[in-house]
């Protein structure tokens, strides 16, 4: 065996843990989600093929399917833009050369290190309970605060704010990207007399657009699968106003043990995320700018 062939084999040897893991823990389950979705399968008995029954039931009979799907879509639309806008705005302020930036960065990042934890959900509950600290705060201004978690019209919004609070890691990613923007570009445009707003749209935004795309895709994928916040804070209530799609999957799979049906639900969520991701990537051709022309 010559040297190169030997090295080839070694390469495979080093990546073999990943190949095995990929086959067993990713590819196999991924394919089986699709197959189980056509079965009636209650974990104790073996799966029975039932054709499209799960999908027909989902779209026509399951009274929780559409409401939970709509809740999830609303949640994504409220969380992602708000979180990214916050992250970018704060990152731009922190990018200014002032003393103590590190302290502020730490403070803003702090909630993110507990990202998705039960602890943060518990804190959110204390903040927004009817007699919680938010309403206490408002009462100092003689404002009678709403029932943040009890009013079905705003409960989902209240929960989506929890995710906005965790904007820290998107902020740090934006900050790193902003530091890469060459100063000469700004100097040149200042000589041209461009306004601040113009500079933001013609320099800053194009230069950081690859990072914006990355943040947008990752945050969207995560938001579609949000579970802990609604589960811990409101349990899906009031009147199912915070009953998101992952809770529907969870209930079907792990409370009623309808594995086939919950696979079908998972498959639909996967397709939805895929379509949205593809749309984002397709549209990125028009708004993402790559300095070295592609790649």
């Amino acid at each position: 065996m010559n040297y190169n062939k030997k090295r080839n084999l070694l390469g495979y040897l080093y990546i073999s843990p990943w190949i095995i893991g990929f086959l067993i823990f990713t590819l196999y389950p991924f394919s089986m989600t699709f197959i189980y979705s056509f079965c009636n399968y209650s974990i104790t008995k073996s799966p029975v093929f039932t054709g499209l029954n799960n999908y027909i039931y989902m779209f026509t009979k399951d009274m929780y399917f559409w409401p939970s799907l709509i809740n999830t879509l609303k949640y994504v639309l409220m969380t992602v833009p708000l979180k990214l806008a916050f992250a970018l705005f704060v990152a731009m302020i922190l990018n200014i050369d002032i003393k103590g930036v590190n302290i502020f960065r730490t403070v803003y990042y702090l909630p993110s290190i507990f990202g998705g934890s039960v602890a943060l959900s518990v804190i959110w509950k204390f903040l927004f309970m009817d007699n919680g600290i938010m309403n206490k705060f408002l009462s100092y201004f003689h404002i009678h605060g709403p029932s943040w978690l009890g009013n079905p019209h705003i409960s989902l919004f209240t929960i989506s704010l929890l995710s906005v609070w965790e904007f820290g890691s998107s902020m740090v990613i934006f900050l790193a990207a902003l530091k890469q923007v060459p100063n000469e570009l700004y100097e040149a445009s200042m000589l041209d007399g461009a306004s601040k707003i113009k500079r933001f749209f013609s320099i800053t935004l194009p230069m950081i657009s690859p990072v914006l795309l990355f943040n947008l895709v990752m945050q969207t994928i995560n938001a579609f699968q949000e579970f802990t916040g609604p589960y811990v804070i409101t349990g899906g209530g009031p009147m199912n106003s915070t009953y998101v799609y992952s809770m529907l999957i969870y209930d079907n799979a792990f409370r009623y043990f309808r594995m086939g049906y919950s696979s079908a639900l998972s498959w639909i969520l996967f397709l939805l995320i895929l379509v949205v991701t593809v749309i984002i990537f397709r549209s990125s051709n028009t708004w993402v700018y790559y300095e070295n022309g592609g790649k």
Partner: peptide, 25 residues
């Protein structure tokens, strides 16, 4: 293989959830 690995970064957990549970069970 590298591209495949990168693309699994974007694979939502929900797509593998149920069969993984069944496997581990």
């Amino acid at each position: 293989l590298f591209t495949l690995m990168i693309s699994t970064m974007m694979l939502p957990g929900t797509a593998v959830l149920i069969p993984r549970y069944i496997l581990f069970n």
